[in-house]
């Protein structure tokens, strides 16, 4: 409706959002981190089978709106920036919903010398600082999770344990009949039959995630190697020989708030993963993305040992203020 000109957020929510953002900036400043801005318009967006970047025609070239500033920030790290953080727009084509927007605001930071456990400590302190702007509680969908300063420690659990605890079956060796029954009980009925990977994704999204972080926020750690993203793999093997990635996500009230890694720094392994994701994209009839040779050259030159995290600011504000969708935390919806 053309007459529907009003913002999707209240002015009160926008004031509190601004307070949260300034609190986060102060948090990083106090830790000596450098705020940076990298271009949103990039020649190569993050290469991920399930992330689609909007493309933009610019001066006769095809550029993309970055799905995350990860490649550029790692080039800064390799150039000796030290700890850096960035607050800015990130873009995802085909994503819109209560917790998704094609343009959203991402806080991404890197801590040289830290591993994933250290980065989780930082994340926990940061989320408490943001929640203290309101009443220390995170709320969504009728659930409440305690993130108050001095409140209980955030929980930490591996992906396998979190999945098994909710479903009663190991995600690496799933009882697919059981997953099918759980999905039907959750009201999920798909149009066509699911592959076992789709069954895991669906169960994760519709059955497991809604149960995560209901009383206190929970870090889900040690994701399977085939869901490593840009995390390094753990040197040791899991209890039955499986390899886990040094990747974590934070959940509160069933909502995923961030995705962090002990960063992969091996350029050969990184190139292989990019090519693998592009192969998956081709198999799904999606366009492959250009390989970012400058990013790979930066890894060749040497990425300092570091951990990094990307946190959705709109979701964090939504939970801190107890709003019902991320639209209520942003001024306007993209394209509306």
């Amino acid at each position: 409706m053309a007459s529907d000109w009003r913002p999707t957020a209240t002015v009160t929510a926008l004031r509190e959002r601004a307070l949260i953002v300034s609190t986060l900036r102060a948090f990083f400043e106090a830790r000596g981190s450098l705020e940076v801005e990298t271009p949103h318009l990039v020649a190569s967006p993050g290469v991920d089978a399930h992330l689609d970047a909007p493309s933009v025609a610019l001066d006769g070239r095809t550029l993309y709106l970055a799905t995350s500033p990860e490649y550029a920030m790692k080039r800064l790290l390799a150039a000796g920036s030290g700890a850096i953080h960035q607050l800015g727009a990130a873009f995802r084509a085909g994503e819109r919903g209560r917790l998704h927007e094609p343009q959203f605001t991402m806080l991404e930071w890197y801590e040289p010398g830290a591993d994933d456990a250290g980065c989780m400590d930082t994340t926990e302190a940061l989320v408490r600082a943001a929640a203290s702007v309101h009443d220390g509680k995170l709320r969504f969908g009728g659930e409440e999770s305690d993130a108050s300063v001095g409140g209980p420690a955030f929980a930490r659990t591996t992906f396998r344990d979190a999945f098994s605890a909710v479903t009663g079956t190991d995600p690496l060796h799933p009882d697919t009949g059981r997953l099918g029954r759980l999905l039907r009980a959750a009201g999920v009925r798909t149009e066509s039959a699911c592959s076992s990977e789709e069954l895991i994704d669906l169960t994760l999204g519709a059955v497991v995630q809604p149960e995560l972080g209901l009383d206190v926020p929970v870090f889900v750690t040690d994701w399977p190697a085939d869901r490593a993203g840009l995390a390094r793999l753990r040197p040791g093997r899991d209890r039955d020989g499986a390899i886990a990635a040094a990747r974590f996500e934070l959940y509160a009230c069933g909502v995923e708030l961030c995705n962090g890694y002990h960063e992969l720094s091996d350029p050969l392994e990184q190139r292989a993963r990019i090519e693998q994701e592009n192969a998956l994209r081709r198999a799904m009839d999606k366009v492959p993305y250009p390989v970012d040779e400058q990013f790979l050259a930066a890894l060749e030159a040497g990425l300092p040992d570091c951990a990094g995290n990307a946190l959705g600011i709109d979701r964090l504000v939504t939970l801190v203020l107890g709003l019902d969708s991320i639209g209520a935390s942003r001024t306007f919806l993209a394209g509306c």
Binding site: D48, H50, G94, E95, R96, G97, R98, L99, H100, G187, V188, T190, E197, E198, I200, D201, L202, L204, G205, A206, V208, Q209, V220, W223, R227, G229, E249, E256, N259
Partner: peptide, 15 residues
Amino acid sequence: DSDFVKPGKGQAFTR
């Protein structure tokens, strides 16, 4: 009513 569900690094679904 519809909502978009996307588990970490996985495929997306619209419920």
